[in-house]
Design a protein around this nucleic acid. Structure first.
Length: 290
DNA sequence: AACCAGGGAAGAT
DNA sequence: ATCTTCCATGGT
């Protein structure tokens, strides 16, 4: 068992991250005690790192601990990257003060891009969540992982691409996946298991290059590619215009009669680069009422 | 009961 | 190329 304290750059609202994660029954956390157990899969071995907040939004400080015998520095680096502790959210806040989202960012300080735990998990989750209300979306992804994934000390790990690739469509239909969704999940996993799609390599390429590759896969459209880039890779400049939640948030924030079309969204977002992801996150957050 | 949901593929112009 | 319809199923 080791422990280590890590500081990050203000403003970083970790409690909001815990709140958002509390929607996902797969994630073991405690919002009162302010910790979360992070699953870390390295070389097909399962590790768990507990991350506990000691500080505040304006003075972020975290305690990492684990009983894993794996190299401590590797685990710490992984978690540091996962939470994007290296990124300075003040520069983001300052940037948006010059835009039409100034008030929004005043109301929601320090919303970080917190990545999903692994690249493959993220892609599966995003595909499963397409077009579904959040409640049922989490029901499906939770069933998927609890039946085909692996549990260690109460912490859930997604199945590997190879494990998913070996499933029959009917096994997902039984979990109330649509036929299409079952095909998307299994067929995409087959591409990854066979090496035709290499997510680790993709994560090093430009946004456009990644999108071009992923959108060719049946079941992955622009929204899914953008969400993977944001929540899987942690890119800062994504604005998924196909997202119904973002459309509703814009309608509400700008007091519009109806949801904006693509052209209006393009116009509204013209000054947001290079930090569009934070606008997306903060817009989502705004309609969650927190 | 009808419409919506943090989309995308297939079919029709 | 762009617009429309269908896919599936729970939530409201």
């Amino acid at each position: 068992m080791w422990k280590e304290e890590i500081e990050s750059v203000p403003e970083y609202d970790f409690d909001y991250t815990l709140l958002r994660w509390s929607l996902d029954p797969l994630i073991q956390l405690d919002r009162d005690e302010r910790w979360v157990d992070v699953p870390v899969k390295l070389d097909d071995e399962f590790h768990i790192v507990r991350v506990r907040a000691l500080g505040t939004t304006s003075q972020p400080l975290f305690e990492l601990s684990s009983s894993s015998i794996h190299d401590k520095e590797t685990l710490i680096d992984h978690v540091f990257e996962l939470f994007q502790w290296g990124s300075d959210l003040n520069r983001v806040h300052q940037h948006f003060q010059k835009t039409n989202l100034a008030a929004l960012f005043q109301n929601h300080y320090g919303t970080p891009i917190v990545k999903d735990f692994h690249l493959y998990d993220c892609l599966m989750k995003v595909i499963i969540h397409q077009q579904l209300n959040m409640s049922f979306a989490y029901t499906l992804s939770t069933r998927f992982v609890k039946i085909f994934g692996t549990e260690r000390k109460g912490v859930w790990f997604y199945p590997s691409p190879e494990q998913t690739a070996a499933l029959e469509y009917d096994q997902l239909r039984e979990l109330q996946f649509s036929q299409r969704k079952a095909e998307y999940v299994i067929d995409t996993s087959k591409l990854i298991a066979s090496g035709e799609i290499d997510l680790d390599k993709l994560a090093l390429e430009s946004n456009d290059s990644v999108s071009d590759t992923l959108v060719k896969v049946r079941g992955i459209g622009p929204w899914t590619a953008e969400n993977w880039l944001m929540f899987g890779v942690g890119r800062e400049n994504l604005f998924p215009k196909a997202d119904i939640g973002i459309q509703n948030a814009l309608k509400s924030y700008f007091n519009m009669e109806k949801k904006p079309d693509y052209e209006e969204m393009e116009s509204l977002s013209k000054d947001w680069a290079p930090f569009k992801s934070y606008a997306s996150l903060t817009l989502w957050r705004s309609i969650e009422g927190v």
